[in-house]
Nucleic acid binder design. Structure first.
Length: 589
RNA sequence: GCACCCGUAGUCUAAUGGAUAGAACGGAGGCCUCCGACGCCUUUAAUGCAGGUUCGAUUCCUGUCGGGUGCACCA
């Protein structure tokens, strides 16, 4: 479906042409003076030089040609040479009605659905999720949904950290604590127990203990490194134990991500490319991409035009072991072979930008990806506390994600109970969680991903202002009116949209026509904040309309039905919008 | 030391090179016999500094000051 700006531009372009000017000049944009007009065209000014005419003369001629247009209710040429445009009520209503009948409100989809993979989440096995994992999950999930909505085929991969020294540390610590387990018996024959010899809480306690010990105890560390190597080399007992660690941990991670309404299509990890690495390294050597430098194997990725020094991309450490780069490159190779994606998106802390520059260049140079494969780095900024420094608990420690969410859930629960004593506990709990998620996610996503932002719980959970709860409040308000209307015997689904009669009503309709623009813009620039800004504006427009218009007490039934239709469309658009951001609305709050 | 990113009302934040820089919180004032006042309306206040490119710069370029981050065997 053509965008409303395209339709309008087409009309204005035709007028430019009819007046003897280049049609290109007829490009129309949203007005930045809403007090004067709805849309504007600056083409007369751009064309003034070319045609050696005063801009306002050109604008006058074009305005004259547009005088009979059915699209516009008003066309004015203004001082320097602006064309100020207002569209007709009929045209806007027609456009909104058409949106409703189109797939995804008529979003412009790519000719073929490009196959993209998005790498986000990135938690480490056996370590609890903390606030540092929040942004990747929230932004990644939203981008995945936005791209899917915009017509891409998207696969989200969590990319677990499940294969490093941390595994060796856990195994070694476990060996010290429970040396009698069969996994440590070299002569063990047959099957290993199906039950894991630990719970998730034990696991989460074991890792930090082992990590701390390795920093003080050299022998312990050496043992852990040896265990890591044995694991990677395929020691049966260690592999069996590793599977237990993975299972217990992944089950817990799934629970936590589900609680965040974040879903991954793939639960791959670093371990999945372990077998790919030797072949890849050999390939890089044979084709002369990789060479030895200070004992390590590296690929040069510096380019002539660099203003800063880009260090070579290291493939193997000087002791021959693989590292982060190795698994990331091997993952790229595996993804290309298995999924043939046309684009890869990484949602990672922006501090890793230089690192990913190296990896991307290396992947291109070594032809792991095709020349046309898109590689995107979506680096996000730090989540800071109110003091402007990285977010910590009151005690200064790392805040567990689970705890943070539980705290906000509680806060919302109390708030909801305060206002609505009649809501039962189960509903209040469910609603509280929905509101909490909206607060957290909207608070994050309404900022540009690349910027640091202040995680201000009081601000995010406020029901006032530019917040998630405010958006939900607006939706709940609409739901409440629609429910009343039906209760009084009205037919919401059969309600027909009418031409706007007030400024607030028209403004609301005009805003509805811009929904897909916000999604397309978010998809193109990988910026979910565009969708936030849009739904916030739409909520404001709805509330203004609500205050200036008596809806249920409107005596004219057809008019009332028109209002109901407008509310219903707005609700649908808001519902779609928040779904793209990864949260949902309750029926009341 | 070198490089990269960011400097917008008191605070937080938005703006494909275009008219009078848009919101939110806070401050001041108003609106409930009426559909959810967790709302609406009015008002207050900002592009770090100095140059340049342009008809036009928050946006592009140079310098400068301030903050953050990164500089191969961690991830």
């Amino acid at each position: 479906m053509e965008k409303i700006l395209e339709l309008i531009s087409k009309e204005v372009s035709a007028a430019f042409e009819a007046a003897g000017y280049d049609a290109e000049l007829g490009k129309v944009t949203l007005s930045n003076r809403p007090d004067l007009c709805e849309y504007q065209c600056n083409g007369a000014m751009a064309g003034a030089k070319k045609y050696g005419k005063a801009p306002f003369m050109i604008a006058d001629e074009v305005a004259e040609k547009l005088s009979g247009s059915e699209i516009f209710s008003s066309v004015e040429s203004v001082k320097p040479g602006f064309l100020n445009l207002k569209v007709s009520e009929d045209f806007v209503r027609g456009y909104v009605v058409k949106m409703l009948h189109e797939h995804h409100f008529g979003i412009a989809e790519p000719m073929h659905a490009p196959n993209f993979m998005i790498d986000y989440g990135g938690p480490n096995v056996a370590k609890p999720l903390h606030v540092g994992h929040l942004r990747s999950a929230v932004i990644g999930e939203s981008l995945k949904r936005i791209l899917k909505y915009a017509g891409y085929k998207v696969t989200g991969d969590i990319h677990l950290g499940d294969w490093g020294l941390q595994m060796g540390l856990i195994i070694t610590e476990l060996k010290n604590r429970k040396p009698d387990l069969p996994y440590f018996d070299k002569d063990h024959k047959g099957q290993y127990p199906k039950e894991a010899p630990f719970t998730i809480s034990e696991l989460e306690e074991i890792y930090p203990a082992a990590s701390a010990k390795s920093k003080e105890d050299e022998a312990f560390k050496a043992e852990a490194m040896e265990a890591t190597k044995l694991l990677q080399d395929g020691d049966k007992g260690y592999r069996a134990l590793w599977h237990h660690i993975l299972n217990v941990s992944v089950n817990d991670l799934k629970k936590n991500y589900k609680n965040l309404n974040v879903n991954f299509d793939l639960w791959r990890g670093e371990s999945d490319v372990h077998d790919v690495i030797p072949g890849m390294v050999e390939y890089m050597k044979q084709h002369g991409y990789a060479h030895e430098s200070q004992g390590a194997l590296v690929v040069d990725v510096a380019e002539e035009t660099d203003t800063k020094e880009i260090p070579p991309c290291m493939i193997l450490k000087s002791d021959g072991a693989s590292l982060y780069n190795t698994t990331d490159l091997a993952t790229i190779q595996q993804r290309m072979e298995e999924f043939k994606p046309e684009g890869l998106i990484y949602v990672v802390d922006k501090r890793q930008e230089l690192y990913f520059t190296q990896v991307f260049r290396c992947a291109r140079k070594t032809k792991l990806v095709l020349p046309e494969t898109e590689l995107h780095f979506v680096g996000f900024g730090t989540m800071n506390g109110k003091d402007g420094k990285p977010f910590k608990t009151r005690e200064g420690g790392v805040m567990r994600l689970e705890k943070l969410i539980a705290e906000i859930d509680d806060k919302m629960y109390n708030r909801i109970k305060e206002g609505n004593a009649e809501i039962d506990d189960a509903e209040a709990k469910d609603t509280a969680h929905k509101v909490a998620l909206a607060a957290i996610k909207y608070g994050d996503l309404s900022n540009q991903p690349s910027k640091d932002y202040i995680f201000d719980i009081d601000k995010f959970t406020s029901f006032e202002g530019d917040t998630g709860p405010y958006i939900l409040y607006t939706m709940v308000r609409i739901k409440s009116i629609l429910a009343r209307y039906e209760k009084e015997g009205g037919d919401v689904k059969g309600a027909l949209l009418r031409n706007a009669e007030s400024a607030d009503e028209k403004n609301l309709m005009l805003l509805l026509t811009r929904f897909t623009d916000s999604v397309e813009s978010a998809a193109r620039d990988l910026m979910p904040n565009r969708v936030c800004a849009y739904i916030y504006e739409l909520s404001n427009a709805l509330n203004s309309f609500y205050h200036s218009t008596k809806i249920l007490s409107e005596p004219d039934e057809e008019k009332k039905s028109g209002y109901i239709a407008l509310l219903s469309v707005t609700l649908k658009v808001l519902e779609t919008g928040i779904d793209l951001l990864g949260f949902s609305a309750p029926d009341r709050m």
